[in-house]
Design a protein around this nucleic acid. Structure first.
Length: 325
DNA sequence: AAGCCCCGCAACCGCACGTAG
DNA sequence: GCTACGTGCGGTTGCGGGGCT
């Protein structure tokens, strides 16, 4: 049977709205309010379909629309909410007053998504892009050891995934670049979302634990007590670092020493460019500082791209190969 | 100056969902 | 329960502006 289209295509205008059309729509809604979008354009004298009118109103003409550049706080909120809600743009928009789902979606696709990709983070899962990692060199024969001895302890799906990921013949991720025998991405706080498969259910919160949601930057002159959320003050260097709180087990890799380190509170200290520094005391007050006292998006991105000495990633206890060998 | 290319964003499209009859 | 309708949502498209050659 099929649904009748929301409007007759013939004779109805498409494409960009003119100021006159905008004015007609605004005037009509001011007088009569909105609703019944199907009949609205006819009553308002517009050669548009109702859907087009609704979109124009909700995304552009509504008086409470906040336009202009997204603030850092808004951006951080979007990333945080997206890690929880996924592409639920309307749900994300409902938590950002004055922003529309369309605007947030566009901003995500054109700015945030690209930046995360450049950081080596999968914008869909908010986890590291494992296709960029040659983990086989990292784990060596440990996976076969796991296969042989630990199968009865492991979730079969997890085991399958881990085996697949760590196999030197892995073909699942076609973009794996074997020419890089090192982890390619820079300054990435890497996590293992697969750990959650062990307790997987449909609960969003459990699927995205807090340690995947809060990636804060702080200065390496501080160590972070993840249990108490306290600065425990062990001086290291003056360069910034990546911190992820609430970590059960974490590892980080130091290119200089070619070693992996385990630390309850994860900590890395990537070198910064001469002129830029990133400071944060908590997740809601990140500020970007550089020599020019500006904080453009490019500078934020350059922060990411200029740090490449240390990588840290978390390995769930279940995949802590040291426990098995 | 002209042509080309890339990117951002407004708008469109199709599907899903809720509801009324 | 079925159908039609109204609306919301997310993915995609394509226009226009700016930068580059």
């Amino acid at each position: 049977m099929g649904r009748t289209p929301c409007c007759e295509k013939n004779g109805l205008k498409k494409g960009p709205w003119t100021p006159e059309e905008d004015q007609k729509l605004v005037d009509y809604i001011h007088k009569h309010g909105y609703g019944n979008w199907r009949t609205l354009p006819k009553n308002a004298g517009l050669q548009r379909c109702g859907k087009s009118c609704r979109l124009r109103w909700t995304n552009y003409l509504r008086p409470d629309i906040k336009r202009g550049r997204f603030s850092l706080e808004e951006e951080e909120t979007i990333i945080h909410l997206h890690s929880i809600l996924g592409n639920k743009w309307s749900a994300i928009a409902s938590r950002l007053p004055g922003r529309t789902d369309n605007e947030i979606k566009n901003y995500w696709n054109t700015h945030i998504r690209k930046r995360l990709l450049r950081m080596g983070i999968d914008p869909v899962t908010h986890s590291p892009r494992l296709d960029l990692l040659d983990l086989s060199s990292l784990f060596g024969s440990s996976i076969s050891h796991i296969n042989n001895n630990m199968q009865h302890h492991l979730n079969p799906e997890l085991l399958k995934l881990a085996t697949s990921l760590f196999s030197p013949n892995n073909n699942n991720n076609n973009s794996l670049d074997n020419s890089h025998n090192q982890i390619i991405s820079s300054d990435v706080s890497l996590s293992f979302p697969q750990a959650n498969f062990l307790e997987s259910n449909n609960n969003v919160d459990s699927a995205y634990p807090s340690n995947l949601l809060h990636h804060d930057l702080m200065n390496t002159s501080d160590y972070w007590d993840a249990d108490n959320n306290n600065n425990i003050g062990i001086a290291s260097t003056s360069s910034p670092c990546y911190v992820t709180d609430q970590l059960p087990t974490s590892y980080y890799y130091n290119n200089n020493s070619n070693n992996y380190y385990s630390h309850h509170a994860s900590l890395v200290d990537p070198p910064m460019s001469e002129t830029s520094t990133f400071h944060s005391n908590n997740s809601s007050s990140n500020t970007y500082v550089n020599g020019n006292n500006s904080s453009t998006e490019d500078e934020r991105e350059s922060y990411v791209s200029t740090n490449n000495s240390v990588l840290r990633f978390e390995i769930p206890d279940m995949l802590d190969v040291n426990a098995f060998v």
